[in-house]
């Protein structure tokens, strides 16, 4: 008989693991990836593969040569960051932008803080924000989708690269053309995904399917997405009621731009969101509010990523403010027949 192993209880562990959680997120993103491949063809695939590969490469390099510790590629968090970064940029983005974005996402936003778990901001979003500010032209060149809604499920992937000729996105058009521009767009197109935009944000339906999968797998809870979308809807609704000539109707806000991607996949990132249910609600509501503020009053047409990044900074504060309710903290108990 071999040596007995001695350790403190508990001696068993559940099936949870970081790599399983990350794998679930990857699986949940599959529908969105599929739609993007249908719409943008090989360009989308190239961007995604390059961003995943460079994120993994940079994480490996930094751990091997700078931090001198064992590689944590196995936890798949770099893969998730890579996919999310890829989904947050247009499919026509030049390769060097993607590599730089990955370096910022992994190097600055994640490993500089000490790796997975210690980062304050969502790495993929930091990468995206950096790219948006540094390469504004390339980042707002939106290829037109290859397919229309009617043919979405029949064409398959088009082998030709998408022409760099682009149309404006919904939010961009509103910013420039005012509320009247709404009539040029179909909300159904946005729901299905046959519109221009960042690779992963186009199809609200595909993202919702992924979100439901994450809920079933208990990787996310309903609090952040619901609070996010809910507060955005309510706030946009109030603005719409006040001045319908200046602001668009709230239901548009929910399906266009990066709202769904942000609410379901970016804001729910475990590392950079609060821990308790109450904290998550506050966090989500803040994200929604800031998003609408930026969209309706800011100079950028889209505000999801900045809203989430700003709220990320508040997470430590929210965690302090919203502690779980402790067992046994009750009003003085009436002693039975004391």
């Amino acid at each position: 008989m071999s040596l007995l192993n001695v350790s403190g209880s508990p001696h068993v562990h559940g099936r949870e693991s970081v790599s399983r959680i990350m794998l679930d997120v990857c699986l949940a993103l599959l529908p969105a990836i599929l739609v993007s491949l249908l719409c943008f063809g090989w360009g989308a695939l190239k961007v995604l593969l390059l961003s995943v590969a460079s994120c993994m490469f940079f994480e490996w390099c930094i751990e091997k040569f700078l931090m001198k510790r064992e590689s944590t590629l196995g936890d798949l968090s770099a893969v998730v960051t890579g996919i999310l970064l890829g989904l947050n940029v247009p499919s026509s983005l030049p390769w060097y932008c993607i590599v730089i974005g990955s370096l910022i996402a992994i190097g600055v936003a994640k490993m500089a803080f000490g790796g997975l778990g210690n980062n304050i901001f969502n790495p993929a979003l930091v990468g995206r924000a950096f790219l948006l500010i540094s390469f504004p032209v390339q980042m707002t060149l939106w290829p037109k989708p290859l397919v229309t809604r009617g043919s979405l499920f029949f064409n398959g992937i088009n082998s030709a690269d998408v022409d760099a000729l682009t149309g404006p996105t919904f939010l961009g058009a509103i910013k420039q053309g005012g509320v009247e521009a709404v009539s040029n767009f179909s909300i159904m197109d946005h729901f299905m995904g046959t519109v221009g935009g960042s690779i992963g944000e186009i199809s609200a339906l595909a993202l919702l399917v992924g979100g439901i999968f994450l809920l079933i797998r208990k990787v996310i809870t309903w609090h952040v997405p619901v609070a996010f979308l809910g507060s955005a809807f309510v706030f946009a609704g109030i603005l719409y009621l006040v001045n319908p000539a200046k602001f668009i109707a709230p239901h548009y806000h929910l399906v266009v731009g990066g709202m769904m991607l942000g609410a379901i996949f970016m804001a729910t990132d475990m590392v950079t969101s609060p821990m308790t249910a109450a904290g998550k609600l506050v966090f989500g509501a803040g994200c929604g509010l800031l998003t609408i503020l930026i969209r309706d009053f800011g100079s950028y047409p889209e505000g999801v990523s900045f809203a989430i990044l700003i709220m990320n900074a508040f997470v430590p504060l929210i965690n302090r403010g919203f502690k779980p309710h402790r067992f046994g903290v009750v009003k003085e108990v009436k002693n039975a027949k004391a």
């Binding site: 949870e16 970081v18 959680i21 944590t72 936890d75 000490g114 790796g115 997975l116 778990g117 210690n118 475990m270 590392v271 950079t272 609060p274 821990m275 308790t276 779980p324 309710h325 402790r326 067992f327 046994g328 903290v329």
Partner: peptide
């Protein structure tokens, strides 16, 4: 591994710690 701040321990703690 590093704590990923998922909050699962908070949800699991029967004493609300």
């Amino acid at each position: 591994q590093n704590c990923i701040r998922c909050g699962k321990c908070l949800d699991a703690c029967p004493m609300g710690l």
